[in-house]
């Protein structure tokens, strides 16, 4: 199938893009890498009158060191993030999640900011962004504001980005030296995870000093496994030490039931994957 007709705009600056968004409002859709949007347009699940392509705005691409954080431009392709040494050193969890996101061709086109702004609860980047406490830099007609990861994901495919705003960058606080693991459970390679767990831990000796855990596809948004995070502090990185905390992984979640599994099955998966992810992240 082919998309319904639309007008196409390709601004070369963020200001031009914001002006176009202001003019067309609800009728417009932002095109980043297009790896989620184009299937939606082709299946005619959405038919915007105007598509605003950010592909020609060079300032939205690239990854830079910003002291205590790294800054990833919203239009940076997944394959660039995947091979970036700064990301690997300071945000290992994102490195791991991106390595197994979709497939090579999709990673060449799809963008870091596009995937996060799309806010698919089964997407691979929401959980790592939550676990690492990412900050979302959003630009609108009135200037730029920063939204914390915990406030960014609002509901299914819905974020804190306003209708007249664009996500321009994501600041990821450095977690240098933290262990990390993205455990993804899929039935078929390159598909969306049935459940995935993003875990990053700070070790002191053989003990977990701090743990941050994000859950993928366990509800309408990516979620934190806060009960497990709290219970892990001070535990030894052993099967016994981690098991009790991992058993709390699904606390407070309402995962969906679909062809891939019932809600209760997902809750069980979350506990198993949190245990594996934390042990791997801790190097146990």
């Amino acid at each position: 199938m082919i998309p319904a007709q639309f007008d196409y705009l390709a601004p070369t600056t963020v200001e031009e893009a914001l002006a176009a968004l202001g003019e067309h409002g609800d009728d417009a859709k932002i095109l980043a890498g297009g790896q989620s949007l184009l299937p939606v347009l082709r299946m005619r699940l959405n038919a915007p009158e105007v598509v605003i392509d950010l592909g020609k705005i060079d300032s939205l691409r690239g990854i830079r060191d910003d002291g205590d954080a790294i800054v990833i431009g919203a239009m940076t392709q997944h394959s660039v993030v995947e091979h970036d040494p700064l990301v690997e050193e300071h945000a290992g969890l994102i490195h791991q999640a991106v390595e197994h996101l979709a497939d090579v061709q999709i990673r060449h086109r799809g963008t870091f900011g596009g995937a996060l702004a799309h806010a698919d609860p089964a997407g691979d980047l929401g959980a790592p962004a939550l676990a690492l406490g990412a900050q979302f830099v959003i630009q609108g007609p009135g200037g730029t504001r920063t939204v914390e990861a915990d406030d960014f994901f609002v509901d299914l495919f819905e974020t804190a980005i306003g209708e007249d705003e664009i996500l321009v960058a994501v600041r990821v606080p450095k977690h240098t030296g933290w262990g990390s693991c993205y455990e993804k459970f899929v039935r078929v390679a390159h598909q969306w995870p049935i459940v995935a767990v993003a875990a990053t831990v700070k070790m002191e000796g053989g003990t977990i000093a701090e743990a941050r855990i994000g859950l993928t596809n366990m509800g309408n948004t990516a979620l934190r496994a806060r009960a497990s995070e709290a219970a892990l502090v001070g535990q030894p990185a052993t099967e016994e030490g981690v098991a009790a905390a991992a058993a709390l992984a699904a606390e407070g979640t309402h995962p969906p039931s679909d062809l891939n599994g019932e809600s209760a099955y997902r809750k069980h998966l979350a506990t198993v994957l949190v245990r594996r992810a934390v042990l791997n992240a801790a190097g146990a």
Partner: peptide, 29 residues
Amino acid sequence: CDTSNCGACTVHLDGTSVKSCNVLAVQAD
């Protein structure tokens, strides 16, 4: 496949592989 799953339409765009059913012609300008 028309769903971006199968990869049969893979071409190289500026030297990297992409699924050409998942790229608009105008994006290849």
